[in-house]
Design a protein around this nucleic acid. Structure first.
Lengths: 182, 182
DNA sequence: CATTCCATGTAAATAGTTACATGATTTA
DNA sequence: TAAATCATGTAACTATTTACATGGAATG
């Protein structure tokens, strides 16, 4: 149940229209909670109906016409409550780890290429995060909110480091396997 | 679309009934792809219908009666194909990172306790994985399939290390924040 | 005024979760 | 034989994904 909270956070950072939100879910906030424009429009509707956000008073609303939203006090309260709420971490659900395990049973045909491809993708993502870190969080800055956002970004960076590290290990291990079992 | 493949893998490792599979999805294979018994029974039905698995011939099947499944050649072929298939990594979708970012906007009330709780959970999970590693993959063993499974387990271990590390950092950073902004 | 892009939306399908129902087997 | 537990299943709901539809604004 995090999509509404992701949207509330994004809207508090900056009031936006559905399409703008969608763009920001392709970078920034979306690095940690991805969503498509259909999810976003639907959720904006629900949030408005339940009084957590409102459309900024503009000309008469019409299909195809830009609609900007802002968070209402009730929305801020809901979000603040969510921050400290008890909610267990979701168990890992990762297709690549699973494929590796399947490979142990049915053979590794094609797996090496796929691991290399993933390694490349994760390296790019890591480079992007590191670039953002340099631009947004230079050593001299240390406003309080920035520090929290920085910690979040570091989470992303360390996760990508985990993946590049693990994929390197995995490729190495694949290479060591006796040819008969590949 | 990984649940059917998770089930095929589990059934190849050992033919099982729905309930046995459910148990194994609570440990072992489920460490990397979790699933509830309802998902499993539904998927077993579909897999049987599409001819990838079959129920072992037993007495006449009846509701409430144990039914054991095994993988058919078509199922093995499908799984082997999936291992090398091109499939992009899913973008990160993590509620805790998101909550941290929300906290940067609406305050950190209650967050510290929640981070501590998660840190504890991840430490336990890490300890469990390390225990499995010691028991299942002692240094002297090195059968080829075992090595692949070991790499998968190491993925789990390193992921949990990432979390405990990041949570420690995050708590540290929370502690440094000026009181006014907590 | 035709095309392109911006912006919002509908519909249908798939996947996952939660709650509950029911038959079979074991055991006190 | 009643209760507990094993085992399979149905139903309803929520979330996510994919494909497509449509109106508005800008531009050559």
């Amino acid at each position: 149940m995090s999509l509404p909270h992701a949207i509330l956070t994004a809207l508090l950072e900056k009031p936006s229209s559905g399409l703008e939100l969608t763009r920001r879910f392709d970078r920034s906030i979306g690095y940690f909670w991805s969503a498509t424009h259909q999810q976003i429009y639907r959720e904006l509707g629900k949030l408005e109906e339940s009084g957590l956000i409102r459309a900024l008073p503009a000309a008469q609303p019409a299909r195809g016409k830009r609609k900007e939203y802002e968070v209402l006090p009730a929305g801020r309260t809901e979000l603040a409550g969510w921050v400290g709420r008890t909610e267990d971490p979701k168990p890992i659900r990762d297709a690549l780890l699973l494929r590796m395990r399947a490979a142990a049973v049915v053979g590794t045909q094609g797996l090496e290429a796929e691991l290399r491809r993933h390694l490349d993708l994760h390296r790019r993502q890591l480079a992007e995060y590191e670039d953002i870190e340099q631009r947004h969080f230079p050593p001299e800055r240390d406003a309080a909110e920035d520090r929290l956002r920085h910690v979040v970004l570091r989470g992303g960076i360390e996760l990508e480091r985990f993946w590049t590290g693990w994929l390197t290990e995995a490729l190495d291990e694949l290479g060591r396997l006796p040819l008969a079992s590949r």
